[in-house]
Design a protein around this nucleic acid. Structure first.
Length: 333
DNA sequence: TTGTGTTTTATTGCCTCC
DNA sequence: GGAGGCAATAAAACACAA
């Protein structure tokens, strides 16, 4: 077992010459009454392996082949032959320079047999890291180079990691889908409740109108009016204290105040706008109800600017800073 | 048979640890 | 500094449809 078979064997893809060379090899093998042995040594996975696998010695520095290869070597020795088969073939008995060149090509990679892979898989299940002693032992048991065992474990860890990532992704994806479904349901519920509030608000307003608009109290009137106009009117009439009181109410319940669908303002603000879900008009004075002079007066009055920024749904929780200023200003009266 | 995509084996270069 | 692990990659082996 002196000569490294990995140095002797040339890749099959080398061309037609290889085919010729391998035909020679096969002929010699058959002539050596080993054909039956070879057939018996071929594992299920070795059917597609080149015949070179059967000529590898156990001392190959780069690749030792499958277990069957080792068995073959053992049997070969048991048959009384102490010389590696290929060595006697190409280097001593055959002086073909082409063959010599052929067998000095780098080793081709070969797949492990099913048995080898199963053995490695079981070992991997026990422990996916490889201690040096274990590596040596596995290599011995499988008839492989320790480096091959190490490489197999390394690649196996990489595959395991990839699979694990895929599993983690699936878990996260299903979790995300569940959360998204919950979120969508909550959105629908929110819309349903909002529509219900609108409906109830309209019914309430209708009932109040039926009672008679003249019977509306100042307070009701205030809530029926856009706050800007209500405050402007009140201010112009010298009812500052009332405004301040209303403003106190406003500031104490500002989350409701900023809800465009709040029952308080649904009747005072353009209902069409509310229905359209546009909350930007909530605190804007109803310009259509003001003459040009009134508008001028309004702009020149002591009232702060009433052009509140447009509010989005997400803004309901916190009032804009200008509103805070406005509330403070009201209290300063 | 051949082209193509996937899997497996092996290499290389970098990094970490002792 | 050497050993070992890992990511990226090459390349052979394999599977399979056309």
């Amino acid at each position: 077992m002196g000569v490294s078979c990995s140095r002797l064997i040339k890749p099959v893809s080398a061309g037609k010459f290889l085919e010729k060379a391998w035909r020679l090899v096969v002929v010699v093998v058959f002539n050596s009454n080993l054909s039956v042995l070879i057939q018996s040594q071929r594992g299920p996975c070795a059917a597609s392996q080149p015949l070179e696998a059967f000529f590898l010695s156990g001392t190959s520095p780069t690749f030792l082949g499958s277990r069957s290869v080792m068995s073959f070597a053992d049997v070969h020795q048991a048959n009384g032959s102490t010389r590696p088969f290929l060595r006697s073939y190409d280097h001593e008995d055959n002086g073909d320079d082409d063959l010599d060149e052929y067998f000095h090509q780098p080793e081709k990679k070969r797949r492990l047999t099913v048995d080898q892979v199963q053995f490695l898989e079981k070992s991997f299940e026990v422990e996916n890291k490889l201690e040096p002693e274990r590596k040596i032992q596995l290599a011995k048991d499988l008839g492989l180079q320790p480096r091959q065992v190490a490489i197999w474990f390394q690649n196996r860890r990489a595959r395991w990691k990839t699979k694990q990532l895929e599993k983690d992704y699936e878990v996260l994806e299903s979790s995300y889908n569940g959360l998204k479904a919950d979120y969508d349901n909550l959105l629908k519920e929110k819309e349903r409740l909002r529509a219900e509030v609108n409906l109830l608000t309209n019914e309430l307003l209708l009932k109040e109108k039926e009672k008679g608009g003249s019977e509306l109290s100042d307070k009701d009137a205030f809530y029926q009016e856009p706050p800007g106009k209500a405050m402007a009117d009140s201010a112009s009439e010298g009812e500052v204290s009332t405004v301040a009181c209303k403003q106190e109410d406003i500031s104490s319940d500002r989350s409701d105040m900023f809800d465009s669908e709040s029952p308080r303002y649904a009747g005072g603000v353009h209902s069409s706008l509310l229905e359209a879900g546009d909350s930007s008009y909530v605190f804007q004075p109803d310009q259509s109800d003001l003459s040009q002079d009134e508008e001028d007066n309004l702009s020149k009055s002591l009232l702060p600017p009433l052009a509140f920024p447009k509010l989005e749904d997400d803004d309901y929780s916190d009032p804009p800073a200008c509103f805070e200023d406005h509330a403070i200003w009201c209290w300063s009266f």
